[in-house]
Design a binder for these strands. Structure first.
Length: 815
RNA sequence: GCCGAGGUGGCGGAAUUGGUAGACGCGCUGGCUUCAGGUGCCAGUGGGGGAAACCCCGUGAAGGUUCAAGUCCUUUCCUCGGCACCA
């Protein structure tokens, strides 16, 4: 064994060993317990960033640990290869998106191999390949037949200068990022998937996902946003009645005005005769479509000049158009109760509309609703026959009244909206639809799939190149054979990432989207990825899993049994990003220190769910530890090989080191296997190695204890720093490799201790420590505690009111 | 605005079930090694007092529950993330 630690060589040897033995290639084996360990696959942006290294290392540690538990572990890797950056690169550098993407994939694959991740590379998936996306096109056509997809108008950000649709990301302060022109909201026809048809199931099954973090489930629950209420119609002078949805029918008598969205037909009808109003609607349509900006902007509005009629009182209610009412939620119109709703109150205060109290606090408090709305549930007042009812009584009474009068009914609404999957972009999977003048929108038949995206394109950045390619869009109708045009929009890239996890089980299947191998591997046992995907990706993936189940492609209803969401990598307190210029290139660190140092730093610096603060000194510290580890083993193997360990022959110091070894095994097993706190696992092994370096018994028995400690440390660290552990394990005289070894088990007998330390408190403050027999009774312990000199000083002649003994931990004397 | 996470030494963090606050590492200080820089090794390191034994203070802020609170409750301040076309 070399005297100095040379990561470059050590890591090459380990990699070659794993590669030659195909250690990470797995096929279905019904005899063995499977473990499917997956990370969210990367977008091939060019090179790995620190966030990638972090998430892949976390997953690789779990996979390698599970392997050492004897499980049959699948860990695949692939590329989420469609997306906007490829188009931007094409515009900026004149490289076609496909070429740019494939080049990036080749480079990043090399980086992943260099980092030593245990992937089954035979299963690699690249989503921009027709053999992959043909199956999502296929499923889309099946969904079309079942009525689970449909086309309707939806709002996009439109850049009037570049004549193109902009992503929210490309809108900066309301202007196009390239043209700097004010962005407009424009309605265009787009394809939607009916995720709302699965809203209840997506919501209810969250309760069964015990392996998911509670915050993620809460976010999904809120996102789905199930609310029970009533839908009712208000008559309008000279117009059709306007339906509204409310979760607070108990506040019906507090309605003082009504408001509709700018896109609402009533608003547009009124604007036809009123240029000022038309200008206001234009202004609303120019502002950004993102919810965050809608919610924070001023509550602007204009009266439509017409009134609705209150269904009970017959009172006239002015109708307004308001920028905070969304056409996409509920009915696009609201009954406004300024006395008991925050937004209605702000709007009423700003526009001088009346505010009326109809709910009083149940505890009899006085509230002034003209100053601030009272939004809690309470007792009805000023509501005629409904006075005195509480929330649920009033809900039922008003809902019954509405249903009896035929004005509406109880309804469940969801915040969740159907998923718009159309993107007016080139670099995505073509939506497999043909438009025929005679037959309308016709799905492409299975025999004509895939609809292949042409990769050899000229890219100018104005609109989608597909619109300039008649050889792509000119076609014949699959139904009538007449002239027809293909859809030139492509899928949202979330479509590819909604089913790739299942496809890893059978990536080479040409006959079907999924085959019988899926049943062995799915669902994923451990899924790891960024918290930023807590809602959209994870919800869409759950939705697609249910679709695949309902088409008989899978028997699993949920795709991911356990979910780990890792934190971001920060530098100087901000997320590492090119825009902020605070990135650190992992490649430079690998070149300088080796993969193990980078992996160790990532695992040691913070627990996986927390944000990780970058530190150059921390990387050096990790490297220093690996050098110390190397030298500890190197020094040990230089001496004579010790005889087998005989626990009975050990002295006190030997027993102590052995106890430390087995305590460390127990702690690291728990930290890595259950808690996923890799930072404390590393810390525990560091403590063990510190104990080894302080241990001075160089006798045969002493060296045997040291050997056990070192061998344990090597196995315990091998999932985190696999290359160096591979080398050290063999240096310690083993013919095998850690990757083939079983995880060590703590020896209960080594943990036993005859004397333990107990802390003594007086009135909750630490005043002394005593050493007692491990099996001492409470009486003996409190007697010894009181005998302690320092404890005596604080007790003195005061009366002891109580003595609390916590076995094995502490005594608290209350005086 | 809504939703979610977080706030502990100079820094990253530990404290797993309400029971010794600061494990482990970084940094810093002193010493040894070295021509020197670096590396390596040893010791110290929350703040204040003390020669020491020890004592007082201390987990964003303010209250509360408890024999005992970083941990539970109430109020509050601040930071970060998501909000449907970034992936």
């Amino acid at each position: 064994m070399s005297k100095t630690y040379d990561p470059e060589t050590v890591e090459r040897v380990a990699r070659d060993y794993w590669g030659a033995r195909r250690c990470f290639e797995v096929d279905e084996d019904p005899e063995k317990e499977k473990f499917y360990c997956l990370t969210m696959f990367p977008y091939p942006s060019g090179q790995l960033h620190m966030g990638h290294v972090r998430v892949f290392t976390i997953s690789d540690v779990i996979a390698r640990y599970q392997r050492m538990q004897g499980k049959h572990v699948l860990q695949p890797m692939g590329w989420d290869a469609f997306g906007m950056p490829a188009e931007n690169a094409a515009i900026q550098r004149g490289v076609p998106p496909a070429e740019w993407t494939y080049r990036n994939i080749d480079y990043m694959r090399g980086q992943l191999k260099r980092l030593g991740y245990g992937y089954d590379w035979r299963r690699e998936i690249t989503t921009c390949r027709p053999e992959y996306y043909r199956w999502e096109q296929w499923l889309f056509t099946k969904l079309f037949e079942k009525g689970l997809v449909y086309r309707k108008n939806a709002v996009v950000n439109w850049d009037p200068v570049d004549q193109t649709v902009l992503a929210n990301e490309q809108v900066i302060n309301g202007r196009g990022w390239r043209s700097d022109a004010p962005v407009e909201r424009r309605e265009i026809p787009q394809w939607f998937m009916k995720i709302t048809a699965y809203a209840d199931e997506l919501l209810e099954e969250l309760d069964c996902l015990e392996g998911w973090p509670e915050p993620v489930k809460t976010m999904q629950r809120n996102w789905i946003g199930r609310s029970e209420g009533v839908e009712l119609s208000f008559d309008v002078e000279g117009s059709e009645p306007v339906p509204v949805f409310t979760t607070r029918p108990d506040t019906l008598m507090g309605v003082t005005y009504m408001a509709v969205a700018a896109e609402h037909p009533l608003a547009e009808k009124a604007a036809a005769k009123d240029p000022k109003l038309a200008a206001f609607l234009e202004e609303c349509k120019r502002t950004q479509a993102a919810e965050a900006s809608l919610e924070t902007m001023e509550k602007k509005g204009m009266p439509l000049g017409i009134s609705a009629i209150h269904p009970i009182s017959g009172e006239k209610l002015p109708l307004w158009v308001a920028n905070f009412v969304l056409m996409s939620y509920g009915t696009g119109a609201i009954m406004a109760v300024p006395g008991h709703d925050q937004r209605d109150h702000e709007f009423a205060a700003r526009h001088g509309l009346p505010i009326r109290q109809v709910i009083a606090p149940a505890d009899g408090r006085e509230v002034d609703v003209s100053a601030a709305p009272f939004t809690e549930h309470g007792i009805l007042i000023n509501s005629g026959e409904f006075d005195g009812l509480n929330f649920s009584e009033a809900f039922d009474a008003v809902a019954d009244w509405i249903e009896r009068s035929g004005r509406g009914e109880r309804r469940v609404h969801y915040r969740l909206r159907d998923w718009g999957v159309s993107r007016q972009r080139y670099w995505g999977a073509p939506i497999p639809i043909v438009y025929c003048n005679a037959c309308g929108a016709v799905p492409v038949p299975e025999s004509q799939l895939p609809v292949v995206l042409p990769e050899d394109v000229e890219f100018k950045g104005i609109g989608s190149p597909l619109k300039q390619m008649p050889e792509f869009y000119q076609t014949t109708c699959p139904r009538c054979g007449g002239e027809a045009e293909r859809e030139t929009d492509t899928f949202d890239t979330f479509v590819e990432s909604s089913w790739y996890f299942a496809r890893y089980s059978c990536p080479d299947s040409t006959a079907a989207m999924l085959d019988e191998r899926e049943a062995y591997w799915m669902p994923v046992d451990q899924y790891t990825g960024g918290i930023e995907h807590a809602i959209l990706h994870l919800l869409y993936a759950r939705f697609w899993q249910k679709l695949m189940r309902d088409f008989g492609l899978s028997s699993a209803g949920e795709p991911f049994t356990n979910l780990l969401t890792q934190g971001m990598v920060l530098k100087d307190g901000a997320k590492m990003s090119k825009a902020k210029g605070n990135t650190v290139d992992p490649q430079q660190l690998i070149d300088r220190y080796g993969a193990d140092t980078v992996r160790l730093f990532m695992m040691f610096t913070a627990p996986p769910e927390q944000a990780l603060e970058w530190s150059d000194e921390g990387v050096q510290g990790a490297h220093r530890f690996l050098k110390r580890f190397w030298h500890a083993v190197q020094q040990h193997v230089e001496g004579d090989r010790p005889p087998p360990l005989d626990p009975a022959a050990l002295g006190e110091a030997g027993k102590e080191l052995r106890r430390k070894t087995h305590r460390t095994i127990a702690k690291v097993s728990d930290d890595v296997g259950r808690r996923y706190t890799f930072n404390t696992a590393v810390a525990a092994v560091m403590e063990l190695l510190n104990a080894v370096s302080r241990f001075e018994d160089d006798s045969a028995a002493g060296r045997a204890v040291v050997r056990e400690a070192l061998e344990s440390a090597v196995l315990l660290l091998s999932p985190i720093v696999p290359h160096i552990c591979h080398e050290l394990w063999q240096a310690l005289g083993h013919a095998t490799a850690p990757v083939e070894e079983r995880w060590p088990a703590a020896d209960e007998s080594a943990l036993a201790q005859s004397m333990i330390e107990i802390v003594v408190q007086v009135n909750g403050k630490l005043r002394g420590r005593i050493s007692v027999a491990a099996d001492a009774g409470e009486d003996v312990i409190s007697e010894m505690a009181l005998a302690d000199a320092n404890v005596q000083r604080f007790v003195a002649d005061r009366t002891i009111r109580k003595t609390i003994v916590v076995p094995g931990r502490l005594v608290n004397v209350v005086v």
